[in-house]
């Protein structure tokens, strides 16, 4: 049993409204799990519970000792009134050597913008900077909360390609919340569909056929997901023949 982190029967309710009901989730080494679900489904609360910044009403979180987690928050907007360059932001409250910083900056392709002011970055650059910060100190698990939410299609594609490259080159697991289903389908190995409880989980293809998924996202979305899965398998012929 080599779980990095495991959530057991988490329940959270606020003002008589249930946010999470008996949610269990376990992340093993080299997992790439994406959580999907409608707005207000409790995705961010689940991430907060896993990171220990929110204590669930019931249930427990079991972590591997000294598990190092890298995190990318949702809706990151730097404050324009604070002058701070990328390099200083990356090392703020982090113990890391210049060597490590340079190595990871090369990996995420941000060496050219290290001296730039944080509030002058484009959306794509900003997400790469956040990814770099989350990779410092050799994390075993990356937790990303809608990392490509505010990016245009081209930047989304670049970001997910970079994420895939990092996933392949490193020994790490990824847990991501994302609405970019077309991207999710082509890269994720496992999808968890959350709507207060875990509706269904498994490979993207299986999830797309699940009745609960179809009732949540509608038939169109389910079909779209299956199509993307096909494309991923490089079986374009099949789609035409269908």
């Amino acid at each position: 049993m080599s779980f990095l982190i495991q959530a057991k029967n988490l329940s959270v309710s606020r003002q008589n409204k249930s946010i999470l009901e008996n949610v269990s989730l376990s992340i093993k080494k080299k997992d790439f799990i994406t959580i999907i679900g409608p707005n207000g489904a409790g995705k961010s609360v689940l991430l907060d519970c896993l990171m220990g910044s929110f204590i669930p009403d019931r249930g427990e979180i079991i972590k591997e000792n000294n598990l190092c987690i890298g995190y990318i928050p949702q809706n990151f907007v730097p404050e324009n009134s604070m002058p701070i360059c990328v390099e200083r932001f990356l090392t703020l409250k982090k113990k890391c050597t210049t060597l490590e910083l340079n190595k990871i900056s090369k990996e995420t392709n941000i060496t050219g913008i290290l001296k730039k002011n944080l509030s002058n970055l484009s959306g794509g650059e900003l997400q790469k900077v956040l990814l770099t910060r989350s990779l410092l100190n050799e994390p075993e698990l990356l937790i990303l909360d809608e990392p490509a939410q505010n990016l245009d299609i081209k930047n989304q594609l670049n970001f997910y390609n970079l994420l895939n490259r990092i996933y392949e080159n490193r020994k790490l697991s990824i847990l991501m919340v994302s609405h970019d289903l077309h991207m999710v389908m082509s890269s994720t190995k496992q999808v968890v569909c959350l709507y207060h409880h875990v509706c269904c989980s498994g490979e993207p293809q299986t999830v797309a056929k699940d009745p609960e998924f179809i009732s949540l996202f509608g038939n169109d979305m389910a079909e779209m997901m299956s199509v993307y899965q096909h494309t991923h398998n490089h079986s374009h012929q099949e789609i035409i023949n269908d």
Partner: peptide
């Protein structure tokens, strides 16, 4: 450093 990081992004600081 804590104050500055928290001012940049509270969720990041909390994490």
């Amino acid at each position: 450093a804590s104050f500055v990081l928290m001012t940049i992004d509270e969720k990041l600081a909390r994490a």
